[in-house]
Design a protein around this nucleic acid. Sequence first.
DNA 1: CAACATATGGCAACTTCTTGCCGGGCCCGT
DNA 2: ACGGGCCCGGCAAGAAGTTGCCATATGTTG
Lengths: 346, 346
Amino acid sequence: MSGEVCGNDDPVERRSPTIYDVAEAAGVSPSTVSRAFSRPGRVNAETAEHIRRVAHDLGYRVNPLARSLPVERTSMLALVVADATNPFHFEIIRGAQDAATKAGYTVLLTDTRESDLLERQALERTLPMVEGIVLASSRMSDSTIRVTAKQRPMVVLNRVVTGVPSVVTDISSGARRAIDHLRELGHDRFTYVAGPEASWTDGMRWRELRAATRGTGPKVRRIGPFPPTLEGGVTAGRALRRAPTGAVIAYNDLLAIGLMGELIGHGHRVPDDLSVIGFDDIFGAQLVTPGLTTVAAPLYQVGSTAVGHLLAVLNGARPQTEAPLVVPTSLIRRRSTGPYGGDPVK
Amino acid sequence: MSGEVCGNDDPVERRSPTIYDVAEAAGVSPSTVSRAFSRPGRVNAETAEHIRRVAHDLGYRVNPLARSLPVERTSMLALVVADATNPFHFEIIRGAQDAATKAGYTVLLTDTRESDLLERQALERTLPMVEGIVLASSRMSDSTIRVTAKQRPMVVLNRVVTGVPSVVTDISSGARRAIDHLRELGHDRFTYVAGPEASWTDGMRWRELRAATRGTGPKVRRIGPFPPTLEGGVTAGRALRRAPTGAVIAYNDLLAIGLMGELIGHGHRVPDDLSVIGFDDIFGAQLVTPGLTTVAAPLYQVGSTAVGHLLAVLNGARPQTEAPLVVPTSLIRRRSTGPYGGDPVK
DNA sequence: CAACATATGGCAACTTCTTGCCGGGCCCGT
DNA sequence: ACGGGCCCGGCAAGAAGTTGCCATATGTTG
C-alpha cells in the first residue's frame, strides 16, 4: 500500500510514471521494462515478474501514444456513420465495436449528421489516428471515397464503390421475399416508396423490385424520392392518399412507419385497406400498431464482418475489392401486411 | 501540381511526409516548419506561406500522435455510455459530440453494454488517450468512479457522486409535473413502476414522487424493480394486471411502452382504464399507440453541458463538485393519459 | 578444454513533433 | 558610432516508448 496522504492543496497533476521510473525502481534498464511488457519471453521470466510487480506498485501504465509512435499501430479504427441516432445503425455499431474490441482495437465512432462536409472534416480529423476505416452509409462521392481509401484500408457499408471492399445486404433476395410474401397474400400491384436519390441502396431496391416482378403478372410503380424519416413518411402518406395503390414497399422502416401513421390517421386501415412492408427491422418496427412487416438484415453481422475484413487486411490479407461481401436478409412477418381485400377505399 | 504517376505495382505504403521532408524541400529547419503550423506569427509571414505551400504540395499532414506526445494534449474526450442503442442516450451523445467538435476535440464513444466489468475495461483502454471523461449512466460503484476521477477530469451524468461534477435532470420538478398532470385529470392513486435498483435516477424519482404527494391526499405505491427495457415492461404489465391500480408512472419510456403493450394486448384500454406516464421522451414514445405522455429532458443539453464543463476544467476552471448542474424537465402530453374514469376493469 | 550456440540485459538510435535557448542581422536611440 | 532590443531562424533536448545490435554469462558439444 502506498502512502497516499498528500497534504498540499494541489491534488492533481502528479505525472504518471514511465518505463524509466519503473526501470530505476526495479534496477534494470528501460529497454528491459519495455520488453517485459511488449515482448514476453524475450526477458527472463523472473525478471519480468519482478518488473511487473514494481510497475504495478508504481501504478505504471503504458502510454499508448508513445507506444504507437514508433510502431505505427494505434489500435484504433474509425467508424463513420451518417446518423448515429438512426436505429438502422445500432447493430452495425455494436457488431463493429464487438469485433474490434475482441481484437484489442478501439473504435472511434463519428456521426456525420448526413452531411458530406462534416463527413470529410471528421475523416480529416480522425484518419491520421486510425489504422483503418469503416464507412457506413457514406454521403461522400465515389471518387472522394476512393481517394480516402488510398490512405488507409477501408470498408464501405451498404454501398458498392468499385475498387473498395464493401459489405452489403442481399437486397435482391430481400426484394424477392417481400414481393413473394405479398403475392401469397393475393396482391399483384405494388408501389415502391423511394428514399433519397443519393442512396445506393435505394437504387438497388428499386432495381431489384422491378427485376423480381419482370415478366410475371404483377406490376410495381415508384413514387418519391422522400427523405428517409418519419416526416418523409408522412409526406409519402399524403401522396398515397391522393393516388391509392396496391401494397406498399417502403425504402426503409422509418418511411413505412411515418406513412402508416398518416394513413391510419386519415381513416385508412392497415392491413385491411393497404399492406405495408419496410426495410431494416429497426427498433420501433415492432412497437407501432400494427407491427411492421419488414425485410430484416443481420446488421450486427454487417458491422462485425466489416471490421473483420479490415483487420484481416491490416494483417496482410488482400482487400476484397472484386465483389462485395453479401449478408443474407429475411422477412419478418408482422401485422402490417394482410390478404388482398379488393381495391383500397378512396 | 505534383506528378502523381507511379508506375510500380506497389500502390500503398508510401510513408507519409514529416516535417523533416517539408523542411528539406523548403530549405528551412524542421523547427521552423513546426512553428509555421503551430505558432503563427512566430515565423516570418512569407516564410510561413512558402512552407505551407511546399507542405501542401508534398501532401503533408501533421501526425497527431507525435504532436500529442510532447504537449500532453490529445484533443480527445471519452464518452462512456451504458447502452448506446438505448434511445435515451442519443441526444446526449449528439450534444456531447457537437460541443466537443466545436472546440476541436474528438470524442471516443464507448458502449459498455450495461456491464460494469466492460465499463472498467473500456476505461482502462481509453483513459490514457483522453484528456477527460464523461460517464453517462455509469454502472460502476461510487468509489470506483471517484478513483477514476482522480486520474482525469470527469463529469458524471444522471447521477450524483460526491466529489465529482455531475449533470442531472430536474427530477424533482419532473415528478411534480407528472403528478400535477394526473391530478388535474382527476387521478389520486398512483403506482410507480421502478427501474433498476442500482440506478441513482430510479431512487430519486421514487423519492420525489413521494415528496410530491406527501401531506396531500393522493397516495403513491411502488412496484418493481424491473429491467428498464421493453421486456421489463411486459413483466411489469403482468404484475399490474394482477393488482390493478390508479395511474402508472414508469421509471422510463421503454418500461412504459412495454407495459402498455402488455396491458392493451390483454384487453385493457389506455388511457380509459389506465393512464400511463413515462420518463425521457425517447424516439418511439410518439410512435406507439397511444402516444406516450412522458417527462422530457433536454438530453442534448445534458451532453453538451457536460462536455462544456469538462473543457472548462481542462482550461483551468475549478471543477464544479459542490452541487450538480441541473437541467430543467418538461411534460410532453400525448394520448396515454386521460381523465380518471372510475376503477380499472379487473 | 576450446569452440560454438543460446539466453538475457544494456546501449543508443529511432519514431515525429515541440520548445527553450542561442545567435546573427537589423533598427533605433543617444 | 555603438549598445540594446526585436525578429526570426536554427540547434538540440525532450516527450515515452521500441528495437537492432552488441556484450556478457551460461550452457552445450566435440
